[in-house]
C-alpha cells in the first residue's frame, strides 16, 4: 500500500458511513487527481484537509449545521473570553506569582523546567494575540493561535501530571487549565468559512465584551485558586448560567444568546464541577445530579426545538 493510498483510506475513514457510501468514490477520485504529481507534504496537507471535513460531518460542525453556526457566532466572544482568563497584575492573583517565576527563570538551567516556564509565559501572551487577531478578523492567524493556546494548556496539564504525586492537586491544576484547552478546541472547531462573515464592524466590540465577561467569570471563581473553592449554590449558578442559554437558546435558534453562554461555558464548567464534586464528596455523589440536569436539559431542548420550524435552517451565504 502506497503512502497516498494509506493517507486516503485514513482520511475517508473519518467520514460518516452514509456520506462515504454516497461520495466516497467521488472524493477518492478528486484526491487521486489533486495528489497525482504532489510531493509528500502536499499529499499530507490534502489528506488532512479531507479528513478535517470528514470529522466536521461526523461531529455535525459544518457551516450548515446549528452547532457549526453556533461556534462561529461564539468565536469572537470566545477569543475575548480566553484573554479574560489571564491574571491581571495588581489584583493579588496567585497565578501572577507563577508567571513572575517563569519570566525570571527564562531559559536558564535546569532545562527540564524550561518547557513549563515557556508554557506559562505562552499562555500569558498568546491569548492576547488571539484576541487581537479575532478583533481584526484575521481568522487564519486566530485559528493558529487558538491551536497554540490549546496545545500549551495540554502541555501544562501533561507536565503537571508528570510532576504531581497528589491526585487532588493534579485534578485541581487540570481544572484550572481546562478553559485554555476547551476554549482553544472550540475556536478551532468553528467552521472557517463562517468566521469571516458575521457582524464585521462589531467584531472588536464582541471580543471586548468576551474579555470583560471572561474576566468577571474568572474573578467570580477566585482566579481558580484552591484557597477560594466555591461553596453553596455559587458553583451551580456559575455552571448553569452559561449552560442554560447555550442549550435552550440554541434549541430555539437564538444564536446570539446561545453564543454568549457557549463562550463562557469553558471558563466556568470545569471549576464549577470541581467545586461541586468537592461538596458532593466524590463522583458518586455528583453523578445523579449531573445525569438529572443533562436529562432535563435534553428534554427541554427537544421540546423547544420541536416548536421551531427549522432551527438548523440554511446558513449564511458565505
Amino acid at each position: 500500500m502506497t503512502v497516498r493510498t494509506a493517507a486516503l483510506r485514513t482520511a475517508i475513514a473519518a467520514y460518516p458511513a452514509h456520506y462515504r457510501r454516497d461520495r466516497g468514490a467521488e472524493l477518492a477520485d478528486v484526491f487521486a487527481d489533486t495528489t497525482a504529481d504532489a510531493g509528500r507534504l502536499a499529499t499530507a496537507r490534502e489528506a488532512l484537509d479531507l479528513a478535517a471535513y470528514g470529522l466536521r460531518l461526523r461531529t455535525r460542525l459544518t457551516a450548515t449545521t446549528l452547532g457549526g453556526r453556533l461556534l462561529a457566532t461564539a468565536a469572537p466572544l470566545l477569543a475575548g473570553a480566553l484573554l479574560g482568563v489571564g491574571p491581571v497584575p495588581g489584583l493579588a492573583d496567585p497565578r501572577t506569582h507563577t508567571i513572575r517565576v517563569a519570566a525570571r527563570a527564562g531559559l536558564t538551567p535546569p532545562w527540564t523546567d524550561t518547557p513549563g516556564h515557556l508554557a506559562v509565559l505562552g499562555l500569558t501572551v498568546v491569548p492576547a494575540l488571539l484576541a487581537a487577531a479575532a478583533a481584526l478578523g484575521a481568522w487564519r492567524a486566530a485559528r493558529v493561535l487558538a491551536c497554540t493556546v490549546a496545545l500549551l494548556g495540554a502541555l501544562r496539564i501533561a507536565l503537571a501530571a508528570a510532576d504531581t504525586q497528589d491526585s487532588w492537586l493534579l485534578l485541581y491544576t487540570a481544572t484550572a487549565l481546562m478553559p485554555y484547552l476547551a476554549g482553544g478546541v472550540l475556536l478551532l472547531a468553528a467552521p472557517p468559512d463562517l468566521l469571516d462573515e458575521p457582524r464585521r464592524h462589531s467584531r472588536p466590540l464582541l471580543v471586548g465584551l468576551g474579555a470583560a465577561a471572561g474576566f468577571a467569570a474568572v474573578r467570580a471563581q477566585g482566579g481558580y485558586d484552591t484557597r477560594y473553592l466555591m461553596d453553596g449554590w455559587w458553583p451551580l449558578l456559575l455552571l448553569l448560567a452559561p449552560l442554560l442559554p447555550a442549550v435552550l437558546c440554541a434549541a430555539r435558534g437564538r444564536l446570539d444568546a446561545a453564543a454568549a453562554g457557549l463562550a463562557l461555558l469553558p471558563l466556568t464548567a470545569a471549576f464549577s464541577l470541581f467545586s461541586l464534586w468537592q461538596q458532593a464528596g466524590g463522583v458518586l455523589g455528583l453523578l445523579p445530579w449531573a445525569v438529572a440536569v443533562a436529562l432535563a436539559l435534553t428534554a427541554a431542548a427537544r421540546l423547544l426545538a420541536g416548536r421551531q420550524p427549522s432551527p438548523a435552517a440554511v446558513g449564511p451565504l458565505g
Partner: peptide, 17 residues
Amino acid sequence: MRTGTLYGALDRLLQQN
C-alpha cells in the same frame, strides 16, 4: 482549493439551493 474544503463548500451551496 483542497478536496475537503471544496466538498464543504459544495455541500453548503447545495443546501442553499
